[in-house]
């Protein structure tokens, strides 16, 4: 079942002549882990903003085409309405936390929805436990580390129990280890809670293995789309300026030099190691 359907979307920011999104059509199935990648300024962030109606409601501008989330047209709904369905996590963790304690921040969305105190308490504790920051609940947001701040942001979106979580480069302010932990949390949500994940990310090395739907964008258009195993071995990907995982590159070289590896493209070092062991034991 499709949760997001975008048809022939063209969007131009106000005061700009060139469209940021230029004829995009895509379908996201329920429970998928979608990875969107592409060079800076290719329209990834703009595309994310259309999923909960920030575009066109907050940004104005000119929009053509159709965006359906769970069968409903986004342009006809307010952003606060969409917030219950689609949770958005932004790049800079600092600028999406407003309250003076972690727990109050997680409750922010629920307070806006006018939820009862008991229900709110339950959901806040649930969300905090899910991302593993229950112990930090009484700290001030500026006292915790960047990785923990980003977890607070994820928890605050989770508390609203959306069907879809959209994360726009959530780890670009984090070190590699914190980034990996964030990806693990996101993967867990996708696997255990069945939440549809749309992740915008440059670091394919860390994320390609989680995805089952990869979208490569360039200049406002979708260039390649499909299973990451099929797409990352495509010659064009390297030319667009996408960071291909090292395991995939090594596999390609081995294959070119005639080493008898499994023809399936590996996405992480674990997969490649298994293939090499298999080839060597023959």
């Amino acid at each position: 079942m499709a949760v997001i359907e975008v048809r022939d979307l063209v969007y131009t920011y106000p005061g700009v002549s060139k469209p940021s999104i230029d004829g995009v059509s895509l379908t996201v199935e329920k429970g998928e882990f979608v990875l969107i990648t592409g060079p800076s300024g290719c329209g990834k962030t703009s595309l994310c903003r259309t999923f909960n109606g920030l575009i066109p409601h907050f940004y104005q501008g000119e929009l053509k085409g159709q965006i359906l989330v769970a069968g409903e047209d986004v342009t006809g709904r307010q952003t606060f309405d969409m917030a219950k369905r689609v949770g958005l996590v932004f790049q800079n963790p600092e600028n999406q936390l407003f309250a003076l304690s972690v727990e109050k921040d997680v409750a922010f969305g629920l307070e806006n929805l006018g939820m009862s105190r008991d229900e709110m308490r339950k959901r806040v504790d649930w969300a905090l436990n899910l991302v593993g920051i229950y112990d930090l609940r009484e700290r001030a947001p500026h006292e915790v580390s960047g990785g923990q701040q980003q977890r607070v942001a994820i928890a605050s979106v989770l508390a609203m129990q959306p069907e879809i979580i959209v994360l726009d480069e959530p780890t670009s302010f984090l070190d590699p280890l914190s980034a990996e932990r964030i990806f693990e949390v996101i993967y867990k949500l996708n696997q255990e809670q069945g939440i549809t994940v749309i992740l915008v990310e440059h670091r394919l090395d860390l994320t390609a293995k989680y995805a089952n739907h990869l979208i490569v964008m360039d200049k406002g258009k979708i260039c390649l789309e499909g299973n990451p195993h099929d797409i990352l071995c495509n010659e064009d990907v390297g030319n667009i300026g996408v960071g291909i995982p090292k395991a995939t590159l090594l596999h390609k070289q081995l294959k070119m030099k005639g080493f008898p590896v499994n023809p399936k493209t590996p996405l992480c070092s674990d997969e490649l190691a298994a293939q090499l062991l298999e080839a060597l034991s023959k």
Binding site: N52, Q96, E111, N112, S116, R117
Partner: peptide
């Protein structure tokens, strides 16, 4: 950016806001 994040967290959904 703050305004964007607030909108995404249902700012202004109801007149009767509750409190944790």
């Amino acid at each position: 950016e703050l305004a964007e994040a607030m909108e995404s967290r249902a700012w202004g959904a109801t007149k009767k806001r509750t409190n944790l």
